[in-house]
Design a protein around this nucleic acid. Structure first.
Lengths: 194, 194
DNA sequence: GTAACTTGTTGAGCGTTGCTCAGCAAGCCG
DNA sequence: CGGCTTGCTGAGCAACGCTCAACAAGTTAC
């Protein structure tokens, strides 16, 4: 009734790809302020200007939706961190470390949201996160020119946890200079894997 | 109607304290299998053999309930980890480390659930977790006989993240002996705070 | 013993949210 | 024009958090 008397904005019809991309993008925009799993379908649909039902047309469940959002966030981060081709191993390590600190400084909220969402209990999200970390460990060990055994993997992964935590609190309250921080992190890593 | 024809178990009336304790205990039992925030009032009430309404009589909201459960879990862990009075500083440090590794080995699932719930997005739960860690940092720095400045705090907290991660994956796949693990952790901590 | 009072306890019901389904409507082809 | 695909919606269900008025099991006062 209201619809026929108030035509409203002309119904916009998008291609499947466009719509999916838009929905994921909205999820990414909401990430900094909302834990992934607490994104409400209602809110996302409202922002996209579509009905709840349509979202379920593209994502079979809420979980599938926020997993897609998480994956997009992970890919975004990987793109930012992975070393450009053709750099020396040493440059790769220092470069990644530097970019990682920069990343946390710049996308503080988003990064926290990602890390949190990851350990926040949902196995699907955790898996995406684990894949991302595994990928980074692989790249790091290659750049360090060290063999990739189980023990070293564990140590580098734990060092990631250390780094995430330290850079996070350091960004809140800088208790040392940026170069000092980078050197400390690098130093801990070196001692661990050798 | 059904109630009058089927008297069922005689309605048990408990004191307020008993009831609260029972509800928190049920929450703790559910913790290993369920992220705190996903505990459903229905499930808890069903296990306690009471109506949903009664739970809301004791806890004003679901959040208040699972925060109480989290706090109980944190207290439980602190009781286990804190050094007994009258031990030397050195014994305190090694003892806590040893007990912590044992803790993760024994209560693997529960501990993961606690850590996860903590970083899982809810500020209230995160606060309980932060208080717990702060408390541990304080004790650790005292035992190490080192001053308690902002920088050292950050480093010890980050070392906790490192330790949690490493002990967790080590428990899954032991890539070194237990004494080696303890020595490595202690070594990293020593180097960091000195 | 019973009336008054406190308080542990419940059932009915509301609003929100994840999810389903039957069907409308916009573009494309014959 | 008729038929087809497919983006899209509205109504509605089930589960969940939460409220509220009222009941009933103990306890105290007379």
């Amino acid at each position: 009734m209201a619809a026929s008397s108030t035509p409203g904005p002309p119904r916009l019809r998008r291609t499947a790809g466009d719509r999916r991309a838009q929905l994921v993008r909205i999820g990414l925009e909401l990430l900094p302020t909302t834990p992934v799993q607490e994104l409400t379908i209602d809110e996302v649909a409202r922002r996209a200007g579509i009905s709840r039902s349509l979202l379920f047309h593209y994502f079979a469940s809420k979980r599938e939706y926020y997993t897609a959002v998480t994956r997009a966030a992970a890919d975004f981060m990987l793109d930012h961190l992975l070393p450009p081709p053709g750099t020396s191993p040493e440059e790769q390590v220092t470069g990644m470390l530097d970019r990682y600190v920069g990343w946390v400084e710049t996308f503080r909220e988003s990064h926290l949201a990602f890390v949190r969402g990851a350990s926040g209990g949902d196995p699907w999200v955790a898996e995406v996160y684990q894949e991302t970390r595994d990928r980074l460990v692989e790249v790091a060990l290659t750049a360090l020119e060290l063999p990739d055994d189980a023990r070293r993997r564990q140590l580098v992964l734990a060092w990631f946890a250390f780094t995430e935590d330290l850079v996070g609190s350091w960004a809140d309250e800088p208790t040392m200079s940026r170069p000092e921080l980078l050197e400390l992190l690098r130093d801990v890593l070196d001692r661990l894997v050798r």
